[in-house]
């Protein structure tokens, strides 16, 4: 059984693969189209759930395109983070909407004209920027193992640039604190009373 499996897989493996750089170009383009279309559909649907997950789909397509560009880690982590964030965001979008989040015609656009202008301008600026900037050419070929790019990312984060982490951690802490302060309607003092012993109010520590 094992032997047959072995032989078969080696036969299949030795069949030559098509030129993948072309395929990659096709994949990136197709995924880009998917990302744009799903992103545009966000504004067309009448359900917060659909809007949220269309946006997630758009991000997934972007992540896949990044993977196709040989940046495995960045691509997959975009998918990971965006699925997670959209799942949570969906909850908030549904919860905080001014009307029924699923069954009524709705518009995801606010002050459409200005938004359109802003979006158009930023698109033009970015595109022009991309085209005009004199991008550096890399001296060597990109590493054949996409894992190597992940490694360099880690190296960049951890090696000489302690700064990133040292800046990010207080920011994250501030985010947690600020977020909880804002979100937590009934903090410690409200639950436990001014002496924090839970005696002045019912409910107490559980």
């Amino acid at each position: 059984m094992s032997l047959a499996f072995n032989e078969l897989s080696s036969v299949v493996l030795e069949t030559p693969l098509p030129d993948l750089s072309v395929l990659r170009g096709v994949a990136v383009t197709a995924l880009g189209v998917v990302a744009v279309v799903t992103g545009a559909l966000v504004f067309r649907v009448d359900s917060m759930a659909r809007a949220t997950y269309l946006l997630a789909a758009s991000f997934v397509a972007v992540g896949a395109a990044v993977v196709a560009l040989h940046l495995d880690y960045v691509g997959v982590v975009v998918v990971l983070m965006m699925l997670m964030e959209m799942a949570v965001m969906g909850v908030f979008m549904v919860m905080l909407m001014g009307m029924n989040p699923a069954l009524m015609p709705m518009s995801m656009v606010h002050s459409g004209r200005r938004a359109l202008a802003a979006a158009g301008t930023s698109f033009v600026v970015l595109t022009v920027g991309i085209l005009l900037v004199d991008w550096p050419t890399r001296p060597d070929a990109p590493p054949s193992d996409p894992g190597a790019t992940t490694y360099s990312l880690g190296d960049a984060l951890m090696g000489d640039h302690m700064l990133v982490m040292m800046v990010v951690s207080p920011v994250m802490l501030a985010t947690i604190v600020a977020g909880v302060v804002l979100a937590q309607a009934h903090g410690r003092y409200e639950r436990l009373g001014d002496d924090l012993r839970g005696t002045s109010r019912q409910g107490g520590r559980r």
Binding site: M95, L96, N100, L103, M104, P105, A185
Partner: peptide, 24 residues
């Protein structure tokens, strides 16, 4: 219609619900 899809009411909000937010 828009307010009664499939002839069924939409869930209603309650103003005085927790945290001062209107929720259904």
């Amino acid at each position: 219609d828009d307010m009664h899809p499939a002839g069924l009411e939409l869930a209603g909000g309650e103003d005085d619900l927790r945290d001062g937010l209107e929720m259904d």
